[in-house]
């Protein structure tokens, strides 16, 4: 239910200057050229995943290679989207339906197998009623890549689940996209101010930046958790995101590119040339180090000779986060968080 917005704070002068407001221009550009396309690409990758699953599961002799490629793409688009998911996807527990990470207690395996044990041939309806633990890409990855599953020999058991997850992801992404595109939806709320969600373009821009900075913080967690930073330095390889598909580093790269797409648009608003140079360099440092990693993350964290490399990468991510969270936020006069992050 929506409130009827009474636009009492809009004066004629605001309307006249809105078109020449650089912050509003950047906000609109971000919405049109970065955020919405990222959501559309995520949706498209889910459609391709549905096609690939149906092809694989209806042709028992089909190669699993095409399905793996479609999965990598869907996971990559989701990773790219995470620093950009301001609005509907970040609300209502929706993102948990896409991916269940971290999975500290190996719940994905237990709940997936338990669900399949309880049902002869899983229906879409049954999956919709099941826990988010089994609805997303993490359960899909388990079935596709975990050696204990032996998918090729157990199509009957696992194909209904793979099909159900892919269709669930497609339906979820289409519903989120609809919330962006509907009249008065998220796209309009990042274009026409004031609106039900934001009083000014500044509030919209701040929300985008907060999401992006949170996304960079999540990158630190995705690297730091398997490194053992939360576990007295004892490596946790099976806590790495996407360890089964060995795509942890590729996912980090996709997320970094998503975050950087925001920075590329925001850069013009920053008044401090030295800060712009520093943040550009911070992105380049992280990207270069990620590109130079020689093996999957779950292997690197277990190899002492790579410890220093990972520690340096973590420091580079930390530097990027700090530059944006403190210096960039201050320069743009953007609040990063208050009650939501530090309430009571």
């Amino acid at each position: 239910m929506r409130a009827l917005i009474v636009l009492v704070s809009v004066s004629l002068s605001v309307l006249l200057t809105a078109c020449s407001n650089p912050r509003q221009e950047v906000t609109v550009q971000l919405a049109n050229d970065v955020l919405l396309p990222a959501h559309q690409q995520w949706r498209d990758s889910n459609a391709a995943l549905v096609d690939a699953v149906e092809a694989y599961c209806t042709a028992p002799q089909a190669s699993v290679g095409d399905l793996e490629t479609a999965f990598y793409q869907a996971q990559s688009r989701w990773s790219h989207l995470q620093p950009l998911m301001v609005g509907p996807l970040s609300e209502g527990n929706r993102s948990w339906q896409v991916q269940f990470w971290p999975d500290k207690r190996n719940m994905v395996v237990r709940q997936t197998e338990s669900l399949l044990d309880e049902t002869d041939s899983l229906t879409g309806e049954q999956l919709e009623k099941a826990s988010v633990v089994v609805q997303g890409l993490t359960a899909f990855e388990y079935v596709l890549f975990d050696q204990s599953v032996a998918l090729a020999e157990k199509h009957d058991r696992y194909c209904p689940l793979l099909t159900g997850i892919a269709r669930h992801q497609l339906a979820l992404s289409e519903s989120v996209l609809a919330l962006w595109n509907e009249p008065g939806g998220m796209l309009a709320q990042l274009r026409d101010f004031p609106n039900e969600r934001y009083a000014t373009a500044d509030e919209g821009l701040a929300a985008i930046l907060r999401t992006q900075i949170t996304g960079v913080d999540v990158l630190k967690k995705k690297l730091g958790t398997p490194m053992g930073r939360l576990n007295q330095g004892v490596a946790q390889p099976y806590q790495a995101e996407a360890w089964r598909s060995r795509q942890s580093i590729e996912n980090l790269q996709a997320s970094l590119q998503g975050a950087q797409a925001v920075w590329e648009r925001v850069r013009s608003l920053v008044s401090d040339a030295a800060l712009v140079k520093d943040i550009d360099q911070a992105y380049a440092d992280v990207a270069n180090q990620l590109a130079a990693l020689p093996a999957p993350l779950m292997e690197l964290v277990q190899a002492p000779q790579h410890s220093e490399t990972l520690t340096t990468l973590y420091a580079a991510l930390d530097n990027l986060e700090n530059r944006q969270q403190t210096e960039l936020a201050r320069n743009l006069n953007i609040q990063i968080g208050f009650n939501a992050n530090d309430g009571d």
Binding site: M1, A3, L4, I5, V6, V8, S9, P194, E196, Y198, A199, T200, E203, A206, R210, Q335, G337, F338, N339, A340
Partner: peptide, 25 residues
């Protein structure tokens, strides 16, 4: 904590929102 403050008039089923001229955030 982050944006403008609001007044919601909820006397009727069609709740109306109004921005308050208080400092934001």
């Amino acid at each position: 904590g982050q944006g403008k403050c609001r007044y919601y008039d909820s006397r009727t089923a069609e709740v109306q929102s109004q921005w308050l001229e208080l400092p934001g955030g």
